[in-house]
Design a protein around this nucleic acid. Structure first.
Lengths: 311, 311
DNA sequence: GCGAGTACTGCGCATATGAGCATCCAGATG
DNA sequence: CATCTGGATGCTCATATGCGCAGTACTCGC
């Protein structure tokens, strides 16, 4: 179309040459108002594309849609980089930024564990807060010895906020219900669990339901157990508890052997910050978001779009 | 840097959310002047990237550099599309646009031939001008019978301008000097050549010096001839005449057998429009531009950058 | 510590810009 | 042929924005 060409010429003069709309009008023999209108059109029609290229850029539009559609308190969406390399880091950085900016600063922060949360901990700057007590929300797993596993993660976060840490001295899943009950009735454990349940803010991830799960890696579950859970409808785990697409516990037997605060604690909380990155977790992310397990969602653009897509 | 982050936040609010600088200032607790400054910086530092995506977009910055560096009258540079598919069409379209907008409208337009010029002819809309006489500048070659070769190209351009056409009824290169002189002394031919020399505007391309040349394709030269020319320093041909990097005729013997206006006619002309697309022609393009054979250059971004690069 | 130089901040003001409205024009409709 | 109607055009005016300048903080060398 000939109108297109005019838009292009106008856009070039305005954005590349930064001339004023008036000057452009004179140059192209059109009124300055038409120039303005053409520029608006050019932006609308995508002829002029304005993008913000920065690892810490966000997608405010998507965030708003997510908040609206799922009744969240807040959402943070970072652009997925080309080739998906570095998505986790960006999401983690965003989560760290969110925590740092969170007001009022929570006195106690409940945390789960996982690769994602480790990245968040690493992204938090020293002094991100002052005097926050960090509490573990569920039984510990040492994902990898060097970096100290779940405990190390909580310690890192607390240290950088010059705060205290309350570790949950318990495995994630126990073999027998009795052992679990025994552990829970232990004073230290009970105290930590109570503190965790009362935390003013929660920071957690979820894991997909497959053999790559940290539970399998650490021997709490076998690959077959996970398969069986999946067959029974599990889409992933939240604070170590396996849930189906609606967010209901899949196996109450198993759940009774899992140490950690109950999922209901998350549902009520204002500051339940759920961090997720990557397509493997789309399903469990959808569950967390739709079943109201989180108040705040921090994720990447691809996940955000997947969540918004169908219904 | 922390300043970066602020720029990103400001840019998002301004460009994605279109809030006013004032509002952003309020939101982020900074003065509206700082917001303005951050936006300027963000644009300068490339955090905010504004690009015009359209096949008919141009690179005015590069055009200016070319005009300055080589003392041209004008230059037209179109962005090279990803993957270089469609470069020729874009350049041709740009050349057509340039011709259409050319003021004063030339009474006579001298044209050469080639794939590129054919594309230009096709891109010219019906009624691009009114009553332009099109004259062939050099001996005819029928690049491909269906589309009528060099003659057809000239005819197309003339038809679409409701004008006349003066065809040069002669081969491009003759075997013997005598024959060439005989042909040139023919009334019709002489008249056309004179008309061509006096044309108010010229539209031409150049060809690289290799076996893919139209001269080889049409049997005027053998592949060995071309190799030999290259060995003697030829970088390509302009109006059928082979020149070296400085724009000098490489083989005066051969040149004496070539029918067409002399290159000096181009040097003087104000409206000598040279159209070139694609990396194969970078060398010959450099020659045309540096040796003052063209007043106006129409090309793609890649070629433009190559021309500006060294020295 | 102390002073000079430099970078940053906030501001007044001229200018550029966008919203809303009256007007005009072309093509449809009776 | 008159009339209607929707979209484009130009305009007024309130508002947003950028420039140049003055005041301020901050650094760096002594």
């Amino acid at each position: 179309m000939e109108e297109d060409l005019l838009m292009v010429r106008v856009a070039e003069l305005y954005y590349d040459e930064n001339k004023t709309q008036d000057e452009i009008g004179g140059l192209l023999k059109i009124s300055r108002w038409k120039v303005g209108r053409l520029l608006t059109q050019a932006r609308e029609r995508g002829i002029v594309r304005i993008e913000i290229v920065h690892p810490r850029a966000r997608r405010l539009g998507l965030e708003r849609l997510l908040v609206d559609q799922y009744g969240l308190t807040d959402a943070v969406v970072v652009p997925s980089p080309e080739g998906d390399e570095g998505t986790l880091e960006r999401v983690a950085q965003a989560a760290a930024d969110f925590l740092t900016a969170l007001r009022p600063v929570p006195r106690t922060l409940g945390v789960s564990w996982g690769r994602t949360l480790r990245a968040v901990a690493e992204a938090l700057p020293d002094g991100w807060a002052n005097g926050v007590t960090v509490v573990q929300l569920n039984g510990g797993v040492s994902l990898n010895r060097r970096s100290g596993g779940a405990a190390g993660l909580a310690v890192t976060i607390a240290q950088r906020a010059s705060g205290q840490v309350s570790l949950l001295p318990s495995p994630a899943i126990l073999e027998r219900v009795e052992t679990k009950q025994a552990i829970e009735s232990d004073r230290t454990v009970a105290a930590v669990l109570e503190e965790a349940a009362e935390a003013q803010a929660f920071l957690f991830t979820a894991g997909p339901c497959d053999a790559s799960s940290a539970h399998v890696e650490n021997g709490y579950l076998s690959a077959e157990d996970v398969d069986e859970l999946a067959r029974r409808g599990a889409v992933g785990d939240v604070l170590g508890r396996y849930v189906d697409a609606e967010g209901n516990i899949v196996d109450s037997q198993l759940d009774a052997r899992t140490v950690g605060v109950s999922l209901d604690r998350l549902r009520g909380a204002t500051h339940a910050v759920f961090v997720t990155a990557g397509p493997a977790k789309h399903d469990i992310a959808r569950t967390v978001v739709t079943s109201g397990l989180c108040g705040v969602l921090v994720t990447d653009e691809t996940t955000a779009r997947a969540l918004l897509e169908e219904q």
